[in-house]
Structures are given as C-alpha cells and as structure tokens.
Simulated scan of single mutants.
Amino acid sequence: MLKDHAKLMQALAASGEITGRKKLQKMIYIAKKITFPFQERFQFHFYGPYSEELTLRMEELCNMGFVDEVKENKGGYYQYRYTLTETGKEFLSLNEIDMPCLEDCMTDMNEQSARFLELVSTILYFDSLDRKEVEEKVHTLKKKQNYTGEEIDQAYAYIEQLHQKAKPHA
C-alpha cells in the first residue's frame, strides 16, 4: 500500500536532506526520467515539471511522522528542508525498496543548484523533441532564467552522466 511512499523515502534517505520544495520536485522528476520507478505524474508548471501527487505524498509522509519538514523564514520567502525521521528510517528498514544506483544519482543531484535542476528537468520534459526545438522551448518558457548555451550544453552532459550512474555496475 505504501510502496510509492517508500520509494520517496528511499530517495530522501539516499539524499540525506533536501532543501527546497522545487529542488525535491526536480530531483524526483529527473530520477524518474533517468530510470527509477517513481509513479508520480508530472505536468509542466511555472518552474518546470511539477507533480501534485508528489506534493500530497510528501504531506502524507510528514503527517505519518516519517519525514520531517522544517520551514525556514529566509526574509521574504520560506524555504523547506526535508529529512527522514527515525520512525521513517525504521519503516524503510522493514520495507526496503531495491533501487540500485539511486544513492549515487540522488547525492549528485542534491549537490546541484535548484536553478540547474530546473534546466535539466525542463530539457528532460521535452526529450521527445530534437535538441534545437528543446533549446527554443528553454529560451521561450524559461526566458527569465536567461540560460546560456553553455549551461544547456552542461545540462545535456549532466543528463548523460546521470544515465551512466543509473546503470548497475556489472
């Protein structure tokens, strides 16, 4: 019943702590697009791919006491930090989800900025288009972010790097 919840908890456990709701959304979306079996549905939203289901699941995990959400006032806006609670760790130890290579990918993504993950997730959202069309979408939909050609190149290289990390080592 809580298999999808446990997958999110596994991702959080692999990350240690995730700072920011936007970052959490992007990390789960990117992990799903790479190969990991997350079930949440995403739509394109103001900050790129967004899942209402993911928001609700995280809320449920907090309400069940499995995830700790700390709201910090950053002067003008609030930032949220997510960590697994001891109860969450106990639950996860009894309901382990086998996702080889998840920790490497989540740790790596967690070290990136939310802005960069927004670019990466936007590129992945439009991965059915050719690169030129994707770049046009990025420049149109993310105009205010003012992404450079170099950043777009870095995002494509990063996606390839994550694909490599996600492959189980034989």
Rank of each mutant, 00 (worst) to 15 (best):
M64G: 03
K7N: 12
S128C: 12
Y158L: 15
Q79E: 15
N146K: 07
M58L: 15
Y82A: 07
F91M: 13
V138P: 06
G65T: 05
K23Q: 04
K3W: 08
L84G: 04
A31V: 01
Q161L: 11
Q43N: 13
M109Y: 00
Q39E: 07
T85C: 10
R131Q: 15
S51T: 00
E53C: 02
A6C: 09
F66E: 01
M9S: 03
N146I: 03
T85H: 10
N73T: 05
E151D: 11
E17T: 06
A155V: 03
K33L: 09
R57D: 12
Q10M: 10
V67H: 09
K23S: 03
A31R: 00
T122Y: 02
Y50T: 09
T148H: 13
E136T: 10
E52H: 06
N110C: 03
F36C: 02
V120L: 08
T85A: 08
E17H: 06
F91N: 06
K74D: 04
Y82F: 15
A6W: 02
D108Q: 08
G48V: 13
M1Y: 10
G16T: 00
T83H: 07
K144A: 07
L141T: 12
F36V: 01
T87G: 01
N146A: 14
R41H: 08
I28M: 00
L24G: 05
Q25F: 03
M106H: 00
H45V: 07
I123R: 03
M106K: 00
L61V: 09
S113Y: 10
R115I: 11
V134T: 13
F38P: 04
K33P: 03
L117A: 06
T87K: 11
T19L: 12
F116R: 07
E17S: 09
E17N: 02
V138E: 13
T19G: 04
D104S: 11
I34S: 03
A155L: 05
A11R: 05
T85Y: 03
T85R: 09
Y78A: 13
I97H: 05
E40H: 14
R115D: 13
Y125R: 04
L129N: 03
E53A: 05
V70A: 15
K26F: 11
S15A: 10
F46L: 12
F44A: 11
F42T: 00
V134S: 05
L129A: 02
Q43G: 07
L2H: 04
Y156K: 06
K143N: 09
C105L: 06
A155F: 04
N95I: 06
L94K: 15
K89G: 13
E86C: 01
H45A: 15
I97G: 04
D153T: 11
S128H: 14
L129H: 06
C62I: 12
T55E: 12
G75H: 02
E150P: 01
L8A: 01
K23V: 02
K167N: 09
E72P: 01
Y47S: 01
